[in-house]
């Protein structure tokens, strides 16, 4: 006997639902501690690889190009200004639902760094690639990424 032929339009009559909550606490690491404690003091701390001269902001334990350790290097304080490398005005949240207030995200190259920093733009109407920006600090920094409220035009 031939099995019953089903078509794509046949709606399933039974389905089983499932899922589970997953939660983590992510460890920021030895150099992450240095970076976040720097934010608490409203400082942008960076580290330079001696072999390739690349300056990492945020700083890293190791240079990913040379694979040498940077932990013993001097962490230097960068100036509080950088330029926009790219930006986007985002209209959707992480669920794909509309944001009540769309906002700008940007890649910012802090002066003296060779890497970019992912953060928000604030107090700006028409951002442009190459525009100079500076951090807007929270009044009560607590070693969080959001000690910087965002970057605004200089």
């Amino acid at each position: 006997m031939l099995p019953k032929k089903r078509t794509m339009t046949d709606a399933p009559t039974h389905e089983v639902r499932g899922g589970f909550p997953v939660h983590y606490h992510y460890t920021v690491g030895i150099v992450g501690e240095i970076f976040f404690n720097g934010l608490k003091e409203k400082k942008l701390l960076a580290v330079t690889c001696d072999e390739c001269s690349k300056t990492y902001f945020p700083p890293r334990m190791y240079c990913e190009d040379c694979f040498v350790e940077l932990t013993d290097k001097e962490f230097k304080v960068l100036e509080q200004e950088g330029t926009i490398e790219s930006f986007t005005k985002t209209y959707k949240d992480h669920r794909g639902d509309p944001l009540s207030e769309p906002y700008y995200l940007a890649l910012i190259k802090i002066n003296g760094a060779d890497t970019v920093f992912f953060h928000k733009l604030v107090n700006v109407d028409e951002p442009k690639i190459g525009m100079s920006v500076k951090p807007v600090w929270s009044d009560s920094p607590k070693a969080s990424l959001f000690d910087i409220i965002g970057f605004e035009p200089v």
């Binding site: 992450g32 790219s86 986007t88 906002y103």
Partner: peptide
């Protein structure tokens, strides 16, 4: 969407609760 958002770096990127498509948007702009 949440599962794709969960693929973002948890310390430096995912804390911003925007769609994962914003990463592609930054790249398109650049």
């Amino acid at each position: 969407n949440q599962i794709q958002h969960f693929a973002l770096d948890p310390i430096f990127v995912r804390q911003f609760n925007s769609t994962h498509h914003s990463i592609a948007a930054l790249e398109k702009q650049a």
